[in-house]
């Protein structure tokens, strides 16, 4: 299991055991799970909505859903993948209910990058702070894919499972995200001149 920058290797949690305890109605187990995954889940949710209060509401609903459906976790995916998958569905339900835009799966097809990008060396030379600011301006759809892959350090397959798309779509989406990041930086540069 990978938790990326949220990894806590000292606490080796038996994923099946903790979900079994939750399924049996052990409240302490849900609190333990929350303590372990709260940052990972909340970070993910903040990629989907900039509204802190709404992200908290979705996180609450996610934990309620985990409480009710813990008996269905069979360990086919990692616990983190399962949890983020639930959070994503809760987020989409809540955003739709509030009539807010949901990160849409319909993106431009045929943009799969197969070779090196012409901007490859210039992106590496941009200051880190500037890159981070540009990242915040990306569309939720792009931020979501990049965060799952580079912050949560999930595999293509795990990311594809969460996003409910084929692996090829994940690959093309992160390439598109990188191009979008480049475009944001270019736009900032032009505006600065």
């Amino acid at each position: 299991m990978s938790m990326g920058m949220y990894a806590q290797p000292a606490e080796a949690v038996d994923e099946r055991q903790i979900t079994r305890r939750i399924a049996a109605g052990d409240r302490e187990a849900l609190s333990e799970l929350y303590a372990r995954y709260q940052r990972a889940l909340f970070n993910y949710l903040l990629q989907l909505t900039p509204d802190y209060g709404l992200a908290e509401e979705i996180l609450q609903d996610t934990l309620v859903a985990v409480w009710k459906s813990a008996h269905r976790f069979e360990g086919r995916s990692s616990l983190q993948t399962w949890l983020i998958g639930i959070a994503r569905r809760q987020a989409h339900n809540t955003l739709r209910r509030h009539q807010l835009p949901v990160a849409d799966e319909t993106e431009m097809a045929g943009l799969v990058a197969t070779g090196p990008e012409p901007e490859a060396c210039t992106l590496a030379s941009v200051a880190r702070d500037e890159l981070a600011e540009a990242f915040q301006q990306l569309a939720p759809l792009h931020r979501e894919a990049l965060v799952l892959l580079f912050v949560h350090e999930l595999s293509y397959q795990e990311t594809a499972t969460i996003l409910e798309v084929p692996v090829g779509t994940v690959k093309s989406r992160i390439c598109n995200a990188r191009r979008a990041l480049r475009a944001v930086l270019d736009a900032r540069e032009e505006a600065g001149q």
């Binding site: 709260q38 970070n43 992200a55 890159l131 915040q136 990049l146």
Partner: peptide, 30 residues
Amino acid sequence: ELSAWEAVSGAARLASVSLPAPSPMLMNAV
């Protein structure tokens, strides 16, 4: 190409570091 991906990965990580944590009372609401 690897350096470009490292830059993107670094940007995602740096942006995530500055994100706030959820409220400490969140479990009460749950």
